[in-house]
Computed example of a mutant assay.
Amino acid sequence: MNYRPLNSSKNYLVTGAAGFIGYYLSRRLLEQGCVVIGIDNLNDYYDVNLKYARLNQLKSFERFTFIEDDIADKVMIKSIFENYKPNIVVNLAAQAGVRYSIENPDVYIQSNIIGFYNILEACRHYPVEHLVYASSSSVYGSNKEVPFRETDFVDSPVSLYAATKKSNELMAYTYSHLYDIPATGLRFFTVYGPLGRPDMAYFSFVDKYVAGDPIKIFNNGDFEHDLYRDFTFVDDIVTGIVRLLSNPSIGEDGVPHKVFNIGNNNPEKLMNFIESLEKCLSNALGREVVFEKVYEPIKPGDVPATYASTDLLQQVVGFKPETPIKEGLQKFVDWYVEFYNVK
């Protein structure tokens, strides 16, 4: 393993810097003395107050520059590359959400396809040392072989969101092949943690409880064939990204492009996850918490299981995510109770 540590003398461009993972990555880089240029359009897909809360923390760092704009604006992206000359680019800006993509396909094409194309074009005309970009575990679709490996067949996406992420991998590979751009795609597996996304199940379950509403569980009440998810704590995701930043890989065909899973390699049954969340909330509030539950059929675009093989990541950078679910959920719940002043 020829591992190179993070180089803090480089300029890092992080798109989606006010997003969940973008915020944590930017903060980690800033804490290590890096210069970070952050871009975000601060859209209202979920509560923008969370984005401003993240952004305000980043703005306390002297080496942080923030640009409020959209990566779908090609002229703006070109000017940022011209003015700031980033050495390493991390593209985390994307329209997220599987179910939302069924109702609002336009924004996914705009952000995930056109926006990513603009980033690739900028990396082509203003060469960078490494482009790292977010893919997703959703590219595996309804894959029956577990754990999911980077070499698995991923040509049957079951949502438009998944299709855009698979498209990103293909586009990045082509640009790496044609223009010798070192690029790395990261397939994230169900990321959770403090300051997270309210559209994610763990966050919305606590929201529902606080509002006095039942939570919806999309497994038809079938506990024997329950949904499985590889929940990955955000700090582990960021450690994986940071370790890869100075370590672009060459594929077996000689193209400087590689894709990695970043997941916990330890899937949890959805019902066990909910039980852990109830216990963590009970700890935080000092009283027993039990969610009222309503069972519904699995939604279109959802997949029954996600389970990451992290062998490749471990082999290249010597790291695998391993934060226990109870530890990660307690950190989330403690933050939630304080941030929203829950009694």
Rank of each mutant, 00 (worst) to 15 (best):
A308K: 07
G193K: 11
N104D: 13
P304T: 04
V48W: 08
I217D: 01
I325V: 10
T184H: 03
A284F: 01
F148T: 13
P304C: 01
M271Y: 13
I215H: 10
R54H: 15
V210C: 07
L186W: 03
E292S: 08
V89S: 00
G286R: 14
C34A: 09
A72P: 07
F116G: 02
K269P: 06
I250V: 11
Y52T: 10
R27M: 09
F116E: 08
L313N: 04
D302Q: 07
K320C: 05
Q57Y: 12
T306K: 07
Y46T: 12
A201G: 04
I237K: 06
L281C: 07
S156T: 12
Y24N: 09
I77P: 07
L178Q: 05
N83H: 10
Q57I: 15
I119Q: 07
S79V: 06
C280F: 02
K51M: 12
T310R: 06
Y133H: 07
T306L: 07
K258A: 09
N272M: 08
N41P: 09
I241Q: 13
D207L: 12
T239W: 04
P127S: 00
A162G: 01
R197A: 12
N43M: 15
G328E: 03
F205S: 01
A305F: 00
V317C: 03
I181V: 08
I274F: 01
S176D: 04
Y52R: 14
G115K: 02
Y100P: 02
N83E: 14
A53N: 13
L160I: 10
V317F: 02
A17F: 01
E103D: 15
D180T: 15
P214K: 14
G328D: 03
D40N: 09
V337Y: 11
I262F: 01
L29T: 13
V154E: 08
F223N: 06
L329D: 03
L120H: 04
Y295N: 06
G318N: 04
T174F: 12
D235M: 10
F64L: 11
S249P: 05
E31I: 05
T184Q: 01
T190R: 11
Y175R: 03
R187V: 06
L313W: 05
E338K: 15
G240Q: 05
T15P: 04
T310Y: 05
E338M: 09
E252D: 07
L313S: 02
S135M: 01
S60Q: 15
L178W: 04
M271A: 08
E322Q: 13
K258T: 13
D47P: 01
E338H: 13
I298M: 15
G115V: 03
Y117A: 05
E103S: 14
M76Q: 14
I250L: 11
E268K: 11
F339S: 04
Y161F: 06
A134M: 05
F223Q: 08
Q315H: 10
V289F: 00
F66Q: 06
V107M: 14
S138E: 10
